[in-house]
Design a protein around this nucleic acid. Structure first.
Ligand code: SF4
Ligand code: SF4
Lengths: 141, 141
DNA sequence: ACTAAAAAGACATTTTAAGTCTTTTTAGGG
DNA sequence: CCCTAAAAAGACTTAAAATGTCTTTTTAGT
């Protein structure tokens, strides 16, 4: 249950890789796809979605490619995930009031609201910058 | 993303209803299904799964039906959900070490581990007893 | 004009979800 | 012992979503 799809996983890998590159450096989709081991045509679809909402900026034609739409420390994992997977919905009754007729009396409903908040909170506190930075050094065991 | 299936939703509704009935009282599947508005044949499959792992106890033949397998305060929502949906897996790299070759260096991996723990923690702290109890009284606004 | 690259959208395949139907097993009652 | 009520088991069906691919179009640099 609650499993991220491959699309979501690929999306994260791709944009984290982009965040790890020097800013302002335009990256070819084919290079990103090769680096993160994702089918190029599939990653293309994903980056088109990113582009539409401004998470990345695209340049067409010769010398084209992608750069981040904003600084890496101002893009959260939550944004990336929701861009391709849609909103975090542990159960349909959290979509909006009235989705389930029982929601006013149901004792389970608040649990899903809680889950939604916790998950969103975790993902919202992780930036692409943090994800892209190299491990400084292994903790001593 | 992360959406409970109908099967999971139906499973919860069914067993919470059972928990709301007097203990030791055998309930007909058809009655439960009608009460929680779930297709009886589908709920039958769900309760068979419950029965196999002891979450409910079944009696066959005339006068048969279902009762809870344990006291309602000793069955958690986590158990119910995992019984029908499988384990809480936000991403496949949390299934086991080695599922993703990148997991030792990947900065995203610990985020999914965190999500898994938080969600499991929430669901594990809700018992069927809490879910079955009637709202005592509305909080005064 | 030629070429490189992303955008758009139609198409294909596989897997999962969401049930249904039929047959079998079990148990109680007359 | 037979009849009936009920769950168990398993095959089957249909619809939707996931996971891609392929082709054509647009854009931009040389
Ligand atoms: S958890 Fe409660 S409110 Fe939410 S869908 Fe289920 S019955 Fe409805
Ligand atoms: S989050 Fe990291 S470790 Fe997990 S599947 Fe993705 S790349 Fe692998």
């Amino acid at each position: 249950m609650m499993e991220l799809t491959r699309k979501g996983e690929y999306a994260i890998r791709g944009i984290v890789y982009l965040a790890s590159r020097p800013p302002e450096q335009v990256c070819l989709l084919s290079d990103i796809a090769a680096a993160v081991d994702v089918p190029p045509t599939f990653l293309a679809k994903i980056f088109q979605q990113f582009s539409k909402i401004g998470l990345v900026k695209s340049y067409r034609g010769t010398g084209g490619g992608f750069i981040l739409g904003r600084a890496a420390d101002r893009i959260t994992l939550l944004e990336v995930v929701e861009a391709v997977e849609g909103p975090i919905i542990p159960n349909r009754c959290v979509i909006s009031k009235g989705e389930c007729a029982r929601d006013t009396t149901c004792n389970v409903h608040p649990v899903w609201v809680d889950v939604q908040h916790q998950v969103r909170d975790i993902l919202n506190n992780v930036t692409l910058q943090k994800l892209a930075e190299k491990q400084p050094c292994e903790p001593i065991l």
